[in-house]
Nucleic acid binder design. Structure first.
Length: 552
RNA sequence: GGCCCCAUGGUCAAGCGGUUAAGACAUCACCCUUUCACGGUGGAGACAUGGGUUCGAUUCCCGUUGGGGUCACCA
């Protein structure tokens, strides 16, 4: 019995690895092109941290004319969730982050390096596991989970490092004959890697983001093929990223401590290891402690949250990019209209420590992103959002013409209005502009300086009867309000009022406030001249009548 | 607990041996303005701590403290 015979006994049907080496040829890309991937498990919704990784990966690939692919890591059937793959694909689509290669739906994929779903690659992993066995670098292990647990307990009791290694790795010392006999007897087994490492030796490696990191060598005989015949993450990673010709593995921080295992695996199997870039996770402040954004506790951890809230995908991406490379902010200010793909993203400039998630900042970016949009875009996007999440708003937006007029107020030009940071704010923002909403609802009228019934009635009546003319330009329009103020005995100029506070009871601004409150039910609105134009005279009359009626 | 990583204002962060320690968000004041949003000006606000090294440390080294990660037939 030799290694080869053992390997054949275990994987009689596996192809030689040369078959796969031949099938998945090195990519023909220009020098320096980054081939990278997003490789999530379909275990539930897509996490904002995952989106962050994917974004960083895309930027890296785009910048170098490389490849970004989506690989689904579904080797743990126990944790798999229904529609997991579809969710991932759709989430990337929502953010306009479609991969160049890989899964494009639950069952379809594109690209020449597939399958891109690990559960479909069982044969491939087994071929490489077989190869490892032939090399004498992997072996079958017959320990039951209970036995392994038993070993761990002993180690813990003796306060020594837990794990399957050295003298604890019982099965590694079985003779080939013993192994063969056990297999023939039908004993259950898994495949373990035979680690050549020693814990008292150090390895150094250079992470693209973290810099030089030093670790003890791996000496654990880790599992590479599980009882169900599927590989563990470690082995799948090595096989896949080799065969898919990945140049850069961009993944979450939590993998950093597995690097010694991965490097050793690459080395023993004889492949060139990719470069690693370990990204710090996005954190959240929880009672003074930092912790990762959690799927269970934090709604904003799920990318679906941003869609539901109507935060533009563009804003989320810009926020994330800003965390990744803080120079992005300056670049954006200098290039307000450029696509983020033109930003010179730099992996190695990413922060080594995890950033606290800042919703306030995100919404500020949202505000700016939306302010750069035309009224038409705002209309389209809020309508799409409304159709899914807010029927009432969708109903309000039915008249495109009218909606466009509202969204057009103070928009365009170099100082656009910045009062919407997400689509879920739109309704509150414009609802008073709709007669059927405004006229039929009970309104609060927060009058300010001028608040007595008589004065208000007089202002509203006089204004419509004597002063308002829908054909006035803005200057004329405001002059009329001044005249009205004068007629009422108030100061026509605010400055004059301030100079002689005792002489007047109020000033033209206070008169405006009365008009504004009567018209809209609020003290803060966009430009009133434009509001009146959009509303039209008929609506104004109705609103003033309502206001007068509801004076107390 | 072992191993690893990290530490600049409330938050994100420039910095890479000599700086009045940038900038953005948030905050405050003022200006602009009929209100708000915008815009403008200004203010407050930081190098965790103790040792070294050095003519000189935010920057380099060590310890302490604090935070994070990881130790599965999960990824």
């Amino acid at each position: 019995m030799d290694y080869k015979e053992l390997a054949n006994l275990i994987f009689p049907d596996a192809k030689p690895i040369s078959y796969y080496e031949e099938k998945y040829k090195p990519r023909d890309l220009k020098e320096g092109a980054v081939v990278t991937r997003f490789a999530p498990s379909p275990t539930g919704f897509v996490h904002i941290g995952g989106l962050y990784q994917a974004l960083v990966a895309i930027q890296s690939a785009k910048k170098t004319e490389g490849v970004f692919f989506l690989r689904v890591e579904d080797t743990d059937q126990k944790r798999e969730v229904e529609n997991g793959v579809t969710d991932i694909v759709n989430s990337l689509k929502d953010f306009d982050m479609e991969p160049d290669e890989g899964m494009i739906s639950d069952t379809e994929e594109k690209g020449n390096y597939g399958p891109y779903k690990q559960s479909l690659r069982k044969d491939i992993y087994q071929a490489f596991a077989k190869y490892m066995i032939e090399l004498g670098k992997a072996y079958p292990c017959f320990c039951t989970p209970e036995e392994v647990e038993e070993i761990r307990k002993k180690q813990e009791a003796a306060k020594i490092r837990p794990g399957y290694y050295g003298v604890w790795a019982k099965c590694r010392n079985l003779t080939l004959e013993e192994m063969a006999d056990k297999i023939k007897n039908g004993e259950k087994y898994i495949i373990r890697f035979k680690s050549p490492g020693r814990e008292d030796r150090k390895i150094k490696y250079k992470d693209v983001i973290k810099g030089v990191v030093e670790f003890p060598e791996n000496d654990q005989d880790i599992v590479i093929i599980k009882a169900d015949g599927l590989p563990t993450y470690h082995f799948a990673h090595v096989v896949d990223d080799h065969l898919m010709r990945t140049t850069h593995v961009i993944r979450s921080d939590e993998w950093l401590s597995s690097v010694p295992i991965h490097l050793q695996l690459f080395n023993e199997i004889g492949f060139k290891a990719p470069k690693y870039a370990h990204i710090s996770p996005i954190m959240k402040n929880d009672n003074g402690n930092k912790r990762k954004l959690s799927k269970r506790k934090d709604p904003e951890a799920a990318v679906s949250y941003y869609k539901e809230e109507g935060i533009p995908p563009q804003a989320v991406k810009e926020y994330l990019l800003n965390i990744a490379n803080s120079t992005f902010e300056n670049w954006r200010r200098a290039n307000p209209d450029k696509s983020i793909d033109e930003f010179d993203f730099n992996l190695s400039k990413m922060s080594v420590s995890g950033a606290l998630f800042d919703m306030v900042k995100l919404l500020d970016i949202g505000k700016n992103v939306i302010s750069r949009m035309t009224a038409e875009e705002i209309y389209d996007k809020s309508l799409i959002w409304a159709k899914e999440y807010d029927e009432e708003l969708a109903e309000m937006l039915k008249s495109k013409d009218y909606s466009l007029k509202i969204f057009g107020i103070e928009r365009g030009g170099n100082k656009p209005r910045k009062d919407i940071s997400k689509w879920s704010e739109v309704k509150e923002n414009i609802i008073y502009m709709f007669d059927d909403k405004f006229l039929n609802a009970k309104q609060e009228y927060p009058y300010q300086v001028i608040s007595d019934k008589e004065s208000i009635t007089k202002i509203l009546t006089l204004y419509m009867e004597k002063y308002y003319n829908e054909n006035d330009d803005k200057q004329e329009w405001f002059n009329k309000i001044k005249s009205l103020a004068g007629e009422m005995g108030y100061a026509e100029e605010v400055k004059e009022f301030k100079a002689n506070p005792d002489k007047y009871k109020a000033h033209v601004g206070d008169v405006s406030t009365v008009l504004r409150v009567a018209l809209t039910g609020r003290t803060n609105t966009p430009d009133m001249y434009e509001i009146m134009k959009v509303l039209g005279k008929e609506s104004m009359i109705k609103r003033f009548e309502k206001a007068k009626k509801e004076l107390n």
